[in-house]
């Protein structure tokens, strides 16, 4: 994650970048919360990548003879109602949850910033129209919009992802547009316009790269929320479908067993919590880092 931070302020001149980089890195290290967040996140990434090496079990293999085994040396986190190893499912679930979270937010961020940049640069009528559309979308409560969409399109992981992308887009449009409105007035854009460069070129080459930095902070913060939203949809039965080892779906089936088989919903719950926490801590730290107001 820190590499991202370092390479970020591309628009600055090289000398500035160096000193700024050093300051950022120093301040990054200083906040223990950011470090904790990064640590947890790295752990999840490693676990997700090496999942098949870390466990001898198949996440979808049904084995009725090992139904509801409590945690033991053979099954560290116990087994579920059809005898699948819960640890294995959590490890594979990390691939799903992280993968989905990142995909969804990055797609929403991309689409949102492009629309926002266009709206901001082209200004007046078109921009106003886009913003009214976004206002309508923002007026939908995220969970409700996601629920309605998945209900409409049928419960599936892809539809849940689509719903979250749609829910998330307006935030980025707003953010990118307000940045674009500022950038538009800057000298290098004006210069490009006088050279007669095409609007598409200006948006792609000048507007988008210059609005990207607050977007990245927003992306980190949203990652946590997206993972939680996917899990909540899974919990409501509207997200990932069985036998996929999605954390929210695991809790959805597991929570009825809480009183007798406490391990079933508890471990996936802890996984969701830690993953979300890591992104939130990281996002919080990044925001401090890049927010000029808190620089003192």
């Amino acid at each position: 994650m820190n590499t991202q931070t370092e390479t970020q302020p591309q628009t600055l001149t090289t000398t500035q970048t160096l000193s700024k980089q050093k300051i950022l890195w120093y301040r990054f290290k200083q906040n223990p919360l950011t470090l904790v967040g990064t640590g947890i996140l790295l752990m999840f990434i490693v676990l997700a990548i090496f999942a098949p090496l870390l466990t001898p079990y198949d996440p979808e293999m049904v084995n009725m003879s090992e139904r509801f085994e409590p945690p033991s040396s053979a099954h560290w986190f116990g087994t579920d109602e059809v005898g699948r190893d819960i640890l294995t499912r959590i490890l594979y679930g990390a691939r799903l949850s992280l993968g989905i979270g990142i995909t969804v937010v990055v797609i929403a961020g991309l689409i949102g910033s492009v629309i926002g940049a266009i709206a901001g640069y082209l200004g007046k009528a078109f921009g106003q129209f886009i913003m009214r559309m976004m206002d309508i979308m923002l007026a939908f409560p995220p969970l409700v919009l996601a629920m309605a969409l998945t209900a409409a399109l049928g419960p599936s992981l892809i539809n849940a992802m689509l719903a979250i992308v749609i829910v998330k887009i307006p935030v980025y449009v707003r953010l990118a547009r307000s940045e674009a409105l500022v950038v538009r007035e800057q000298l290098f854009v004006k210069a490009a316009e006088t050279f007669g460069l095409s609007k598409v070129w200006i948006i792609a080459r000048h507007i988008v790269p210059n609005v990207i930095s607050p977007i990245i902070v927003q992306v980190t913060i949203d990652l946590g929320e997206a993972i939680l939203l996917i899990a909540t949809l899974g919990f409501l039965g509207l997200g990932a479908q069985p036998p996929m080892p999605e954390w929210g779906a695991m809790i959805s089936t597991g929570w009825e067993f809480f009183l007798d088989q406490w391990w079933y919903p508890t471990f996936p719950g802890i996984a969701i919590f830690l993953a979300t926490l890591s992104f939130n801590l990281l996002g919080d730290g990044l925001r401090d880092l890049l927010d000029p107001k808190s620089t003192r």
Partner: peptide
Amino acid sequence: ELALTIQS
């Protein structure tokens, strides 16, 4: 659970 059992 029934569906998973039938599947396997």
